[in-house]
Computed example of a mutant assay.
Amino acid sequence: MQDEPTATELIKAVADFLRNEITPVIKGHNAFKLRVGINALDLVTRQLALEQEGDAAEAARLKQLLGADGSLIELNRALSEKIAKGEVDLQTPGLAKHLWQTTMDKLAVDQPNYASYKREVENK
């Protein structure tokens, strides 16, 4: 384990520097590419902050749904296979809730400013 600053703090500092100091002086296509880079850094920061908790919750839901143990990848593969075979569907208790929560957790990382996501979070 490293001392401070943390990886999240370092990435955020770089993103803030690029956003506040470099973005105002860059024009044209390079400005677009810079914004894409800043967005990627922001996404990685959110992923570092939220991924572990989200993955643990998703795995717990999958273990309960499937009555099986395994890695997150294995559990998702097993669920996908059961859905493909018609063994589970949206009528299966807990599946719709699991899919909804998994989607919301992924949007929190990928698109937290997405209007529909924000509306759902506010309505909780």
Rank of each mutant, 00 (worst) to 15 (best):
E53D: 11
D55T: 04
A40G: 05
E74W: 00
E87M: 05
T103C: 05
A49R: 11
V14K: 05
E120A: 15
N39M: 12
I26D: 00
N39C: 12
E74D: 14
E81M: 03
F32Y: 14
G54C: 07
K12G: 07
T92V: 14
L95W: 04
N30E: 15
R19W: 09
G54Q: 06
L10D: 09
R77K: 13
Y114P: 00
A15H: 01
E58P: 00
E4W: 10
F32I: 15
F17N: 12
Q52S: 15
E74H: 01
A108R: 02
P112V: 12
K85D: 13
A40Q: 08
G54M: 04
T45R: 11
G86I: 04
K118W: 01
D69W: 01
Q52T: 14
S80Y: 05
L41I: 07
L65Q: 01
L34D: 08
Q52Y: 06
G70I: 10
T102L: 02
G86A: 05
E9N: 12
H98V: 03
D89V: 02
R35V: 03
Q111S: 13
E87N: 04
L18E: 09
L95N: 06
L43Q: 11
T23I: 11
N39P: 05
A60F: 04
R46Y: 02
R77S: 10
L79E: 01
N113R: 07
P93Y: 06
A56R: 15
R46G: 02
V14H: 03
L79F: 12
G86V: 06
G67W: 09
G86M: 06
N39H: 13
F17Q: 14
T6G: 08
A96M: 13
L99C: 09
L65E: 01
K124E: 15
E81A: 09
K12V: 12
P93S: 07
I26F: 06
S71G: 13
L107T: 01
A15R: 02
A31W: 03
R61H: 12
L95D: 05
I83Y: 04
N76K: 09
E122I: 06
L99Y: 04
L72K: 02
V36R: 13
Q111W: 00
Q64L: 15
L90D: 04
E74S: 14
Q64P: 00
M1C: 07
M1Q: 10
D69S: 14
G70L: 05
A59M: 07
I38R: 09
T6A: 14
D42S: 08
Q52D: 14
K82E: 03
L18I: 02
D16T: 09
D16W: 03
G70E: 05
W100H: 09
A40Y: 03
N20D: 08
L72E: 01
N20P: 01
W100L: 13
Q47C: 07
K124M: 13
G37N: 01
G86R: 06
L79K: 00
T45G: 09
E74P: 02
D105K: 02
H29G: 04
V88E: 06
K63F: 10
L99S: 08
S116L: 12
E81H: 07
P5R: 10
A49F: 06
G54H: 12
T45C: 13
L107D: 01
L50I: 08
K63T: 08
A84I: 02
W100M: 13
V25K: 05
T23R: 12
V14A: 15
T103P: 00
Y117P: 00
T8E: 15
P5I: 00
K63D: 01
K12H: 03
A60K: 11
A60S: 10
G86N: 07
P93R: 09
D69L: 12
